[in-house]
Design a protein around this nucleic acid. Structure first.
Lengths: 179, 179
DNA sequence: GGAAAACATGTAATTAATTACATGTTTTTA
DNA sequence: TAAAAACATGTAATTAATTACATGTTTTCC
């Protein structure tokens, strides 16, 4: 089983499983929550990837049961998988992040500051991004209530801090052009 | 020919062609330059899309020749295409932007502030993002030397301003954690 | 106790996107 | 004037990603 060098999803999964053994369902949740700001993947992409990664020897799973009969697969790293993760983290990351933002593209097609559509569009986005900012700040409060929590999951703290700052910038930028 | 509602590439192409008739090559350049910060598409995605859009009646093309025999296709909007563009811009944009950032993900897997890989990683990214910031600022200087230029392409100015602010935030954030 | 939400795992079909293949012209620059 | 870079257009193959299909269990809440 050959998994392409460029396939970044596998490395992210390796990183998640390195934190603790998890199920495909748990991983899907992580893509919705803590890392969803910087990478996205659906469960339909995750389950097949877990199979490929197990075949290629980077992870293994243990079958467990919740309650009477709900089957779960707890995946964890093999030594080979751990080595692959360490190598990936140490590699340079020369590619700048890629953003797809439909709203910003729409703005590109607004020709003048007097266009009557402009202010409502900015207003609508401000509502969305203020809500997202509030949500992220709330998460920081609950996940990192004290310094000990930060020290225990420093990387998680870093990216949440980055996401909050980025969202704050987005809101500030929108408000700069709102009147 | 049915083109899915969700296919955003077509709308972006419509917006670009609404500014002026352009070739597929010109569009590919736009995705590398002015709008590349917020959407990406290769020429191999653009040419087939232009065909589909022409078949569906949203654009047409005119064959022109440069020099002796270099054939070009200048695409432009039909009334139907223009209507589609206007409808798209007026629609709400309820989805927050999606970012994929491999570097930030790597940070997530750094467990402590003392990890020896952390500072070099931040340093490397700072080099990249400072360069990108300088590049964007340079572009603003050349593309928008005066207020008249801004007024003529306000949307373009808006998104370049947004890109610069975002990059500035990224650099500031990296420097906050650099020592 | 019943309904709804959350947990849990998969596959199938389709669409989106990248990388590679393929070819030729025109302009710029050394 | 030769080479390199930029202009110009496509297709093929592959990979990535989304949406839809499909099923069943456990927990929570009313």
């Amino acid at each position: 089983m050959i998994i392409g060098q460029r396939n970044r999803l596998q490395y992210i999964i390796l990183g998640l499983l390195n934190q603790r053994p998890q199920t495909g369902y748990d991983l899907a949740k992580a893509f919705e929550n803590e890392i969803g700001e910087f990478w996205q993947a659906q469960h339909s992409q995750i389950y097949p990837m877990l199979k490929r990664m197990e075949t290629s020897g980077d992870i293994t799973h243990e079958d467990t049961v919740t309650g009477e009969k709900l089957a779960k697969k707890q995946y964890s790293l093999t030594p080979a998988g751990h080595a692959k993760l360490v190598a990936w983290v140490s590699e340079p990351s020369p590619e700048l992040s890629a953003t797809k933002d439909e709203f910003i593209l729409k703005l590109y097609f607004i020709k003048t500051a007097a266009d009557p559509r402009l202010q409502p569009m900015l207003q609508e986005q401000a509502v969305l991004h203020r809500a997202q900012l509030a949500h992220l700040k709330q998460r920081r409060e609950t996940v990192f209530p004290d310094q000990a929590a930060i020290d225990q999951a420093y990387g998680h703290y870093l990216i949440l801090d980055h996401a909050i700052g980025r969202e704050q910038y987005y809101v500030d930028w929108l408000e700069k052009f709102l009147r």
